[in-house]
Amino acid sequence: MNTDLDVGDLTRAIENFNRYYIRLPAVQKLSFTTLSVLDTLAHSGPKRLTELARTEQISQPGLTQLVTRLERDGLVERRSDPADGRAVLVHITDSGRKIGHVRHEDRGRHLIPLIDQLTATERQAIAAALPALTRLAKLGTDAGP
């Protein structure tokens, strides 16, 4: 275990930031689960329902209902899996992708006034940490739930 990083401090910092970040006012009022599914599909590509239920940590019946609503709203679509004609892949649509972009831009607008209150040293520290945080998130994503 590397001693130059206090994992407890990192965990608390991430949890505290996430608590603030996920509760930012939204342009579109969508549930956290809905946004998470759209984000997963936007970043990871099409998924089978079973795989999506596992990564999102919700029941398959619950996910099926959510995907049905998202499909009705034009945010995702189901297509046959070319590797297995019996299976279905869930794809994000351009409308679903746009929701993610709008949400990302809106959250950025909320962060700018807070970032402006940081010292130059604090902003530089965050900038320097971004590559490591990005890699940490990728390692966690690749490892799966």
Rank of each mutant, 00 (worst) to 15 (best):
D84S: 13
S80D: 11
K29V: 07
V27T: 12
R23G: 06
Q124C: 00
L70Y: 08
Q57P: 01
A143Q: 09
K29W: 04
T93K: 13
L63W: 04
L35Q: 07
M1E: 04
A137S: 15
P131K: 13
A129M: 11
E105L: 15
L89M: 11
S80A: 12
R135S: 13
L118A: 08
T50E: 10
V67D: 03
G108L: 12
R78F: 02
G62T: 07
R86C: 00
L30S: 00
N2D: 06
L52W: 00
A13Y: 03
E71W: 01
P145L: 12
T134H: 09
A129F: 05
M1Y: 03
L5E: 07
L41C: 07
Q28I: 09
E122N: 02
L52C: 05
P131N: 12
L38K: 10
L89I: 06
A42Y: 06
L66A: 04
H104M: 11
P131A: 14
R86G: 01
R103F: 01
L35S: 03
E71S: 13
A87H: 07
A143R: 12
D73H: 12
A143S: 11
Q124V: 00
D116E: 15
Q60L: 12
L75M: 12
L89G: 09
E122V: 00
I115E: 02
L75I: 03
D6V: 08
R86W: 01
A132W: 13
L30V: 04
D84I: 05
A129L: 13
G85S: 14
V37Y: 05
G140Q: 15
T40Q: 12
D73I: 07
L35F: 05
A120F: 08
A26G: 04
V102D: 09
Y21N: 07
N16S: 14
L118V: 05
A13D: 03
I115D: 01
S95L: 10
A26H: 08
A120I: 10
L66N: 03
L63M: 08
L111C: 05
T55R: 11
S44I: 01
I14H: 01
L75T: 02
I58R: 02
A42E: 09
D39K: 11
A128E: 15
L118D: 04
E15F: 15
L114W: 06
A42M: 12
N18E: 13
S44V: 04
D94F: 05
T11N: 08
P61W: 05
L136G: 12
G96K: 06
R123N: 03
L111A: 11
S95F: 02
K98F: 04
D4C: 09
M1K: 06
P113L: 00
L35M: 14
T93Q: 10
T50D: 09
G74T: 07
V90G: 03
L130V: 14
H91G: 05
V88M: 06
L10Q: 11
D4H: 15
H91P: 03
L136N: 08
I22T: 10
L130M: 15
H104C: 08
A128T: 15
A42K: 14
G108P: 03
G140N: 15
H43R: 14
R19I: 02
R72I: 01
I22M: 14
A13K: 08
I126W: 09
S80H: 11
R103I: 02
